[in-house]
Design a binder for these strands. Structure first.
Lengths: 345, 345
DNA sequence: CGGCCCGGTGAGAGCGCTCTCGAATCGTGA
DNA sequence: TCACGATTCGAGAGCGCTCTCACCGGGCCG
């Protein structure tokens, strides 16, 4: 219990099974090329001794770790207010454990942490990395690329340099936004506004693009930049009502923003959806189902994104068991979104 | 970039600095007992070569991994709908990285996973574990104890067996509940009800105990068991109104439940807080600030809980740098809660 | 019937690091 | 001045594992 009984080694297993260490090793790693009776004997010895391979010794020679890092770079507390990463983590975790890989979590905040993470990844402690880095000016992708660690990004990284080599998994922010706005238009709304997210994040920028795809060149006053927070949503909605008292629909860049907007609308006596229809983005149920009225929103399958990220990475690492892609490096994936109709639009 | 340049070894550093591998090792690990000029030379060599110690080789001999597992055992999706674990993880992460420890995340769902986790921990891949296991009947604590891995629990584990040896960090659920109920009483409420959480979780049970501490032996119909979800809160509130139409205050076991209750109250035309005062628990801002009216609730410092868990574990692992506890195994810690007054009570 | 090939097995060389131990160096007190 | 203790450094033995390579035996072809 408390005192650490010395763990049995491969040597011990071999001795007990009456074979060499080499043969024992072969059996432990699949048993190819070992005749049945011996396989059985080794297996039994493993069982009886409760042998578990020493991972450190193993990776010392194989140079593999069967571990991948998940880097979540978010200076802002905001992120933790939504279950986004939690769900993504769950998807990642499922896929990784299904292929016997460990998940090393790296949370960063602040610039100094970037260096630390870069050093860690460059240190070769993990076979690859899954990185969430949503800001345009983030130095992390560069550091990681420099470190030469196989990486898959969560969300399209907004690199300025020309290389399109980055593999990422993203949801169809632009398409989802289009669908939302089209829905508002189909409802007969004509003064449709958009409260954006921080435009240095590709997801926010893409949603704005989708909005513009449908609306064309509209009064720029109908687009208000915000920051993905409820408070920001409130501010933006207030400004919107000042500039355009006749607004009859709002597409908010995420659910939190929409919740803030809803509150201001109620406070100003506007009925939702009768006077103003509102659509959010994300489908964070804890928020979208709690608003008054419940929020119509664009859902993205967050857990699936995580699973996919892990799968792409493992494939790239040449992990057996993962169905092989056609050839070489797998390419990025963009997942579809769906409109979830509740009461607000 | 793609091809893995062979990482420099200690041997290389030693050669470049003109010292032995042993001395280079000493410098890398603090440099005690090495004279200044040599220290400087080795440091420079490390710098120039970009040397990073091979962790696998190191732990092969030290039998330490400088890594701890974080086990989150939650079959239910519910958990991921709140930022509870995210915040806790952040606290844990901060403390661990401050002491150069890695965080290996183990997410489980379903019984079979338990065995996997047990095997992993027993496999000696990590130095210790931080475990969130909130259910009374959870086999995990037993498995872990059996594996002999130093562990700190998040939340008081509800063990039936007699051993009080488990170290845990919890918030003062009972005290917080008392404060909430006293607040309601101070408001002049007399028909105070409680919507509980799942009573197989110690946090829910403790909150109920706190409620009883203040209310004494009341009409059992004023206590309704629920499940920490908004939908459950709605159901419970409905039942409550049927049985006790005269209820004038509700203490909900968490914010999500309170949100559900609020919705039912509004739907039934009860004004909050005029007719019925409502208090939640947790202070999940994303929820508590969004409800109508904003929710009065009991806050627990979740991030601090995480940080503390990590600190206790590191101390127990004899990690230098962590201020030493007085003697031996540190004991559990219960963190205070605070009442956050918003509009609902 | 002999040589050859081939699948199955074991011996042994490291992987990169820490740590013990003895050698070398330096100072100090008598 | 010389012995002796303290300090600093290097040589070398592993930690537990994988993997190459040589070895051995039996089946098959010539």
């Amino acid at each position: 219990m408390t005192d650490t009984a010395p763990r049995p080694t491969l040597e011990a297993v071999a001795a007990r099974a009456g074979v060499s260490r080499a043969t024992a090793s072969r059996v432990v790693n699949g048993g190819d090329g070992v005749r049945e009776p011996l396989v059985a004997r080794v297996r039994r010895a493993v069982e009886e001794l409760g042998y578990v391979p020493n991972q450190a010794a193993r990776s010392l020679v194989t140079k593999r770790h069967d571990a991948v890092a998940v880097v979540i770079a978010e200076p802002e507390t905001r992120v933790f207010a939504d279950p986004f990463f939690a769900l993504q983590l769950r998807g990642i975790s499922k896929e990784l454990t299904a292929h016997d890989n460990q998940l090393v979590l790296l949370l960063t905040e602040g610039r100094d942490d970037h260096a630390r993470v870069g050093r860690y990844l460059a240190g070769g402690h993990v076979d690859g990395a899954l990185v969430f880095s949503l800001h345009l000016d983030d130095p992390l992708p560069g550091l990681i690329h420099h470190a030469g660690v196989p990486t898959v990004f969560g969300g399209r990284p907004g690199w300025s340099d020309g290389r399109g080599g980055a593999v990422y998994v993203d949801s169809d922010n632009r398409g989802g936004a289009r669908e939302a706005v089209r829905h508002l238009a189909a409802l007969g709304r004509t003064r449709i506004a958009h409260i954006t997210g921080p435009l240095d994040q590709t997801s926010a920028a893409d949603r704005l693009d989708g909005f513009r795809d449908v609306m064309g060149d509209i009064d720029p006053g109908l687009v208000v930049e915000s920051d993905f927070t409820p408070a920001g949503g409130e501010r933006a909605m207030r400004r919107l009502l000042e500039r355009h008292p006749d607004v009859d629909a709002v597409f908010a860049a995420n659910d939190l923003t929409a919740a803030g907007a809803l509150r201001v609308l109620r406070e100003r006596g506007r009925r939702v959806p009768e006077d103003v229809a509102v659509i959010g983005f994300d489908d964070m149920v804890a928020v979208a189902e709690q608003t008054d009225p419940p929020l119509t929103t664009v859902r993205q399958d967050i857990e699936e994104m995580g699973r996919l990220m892990a799968r792409l990475l493992l494939r790239r690492l040449g992990n057996k068991g993962v169905e092989a892609g056609r050839t070489g490096t797998p390419s990025s994936v963009v997942l579809p979104t769906t409109l979830v109709r509740r009461a607000s639009a």
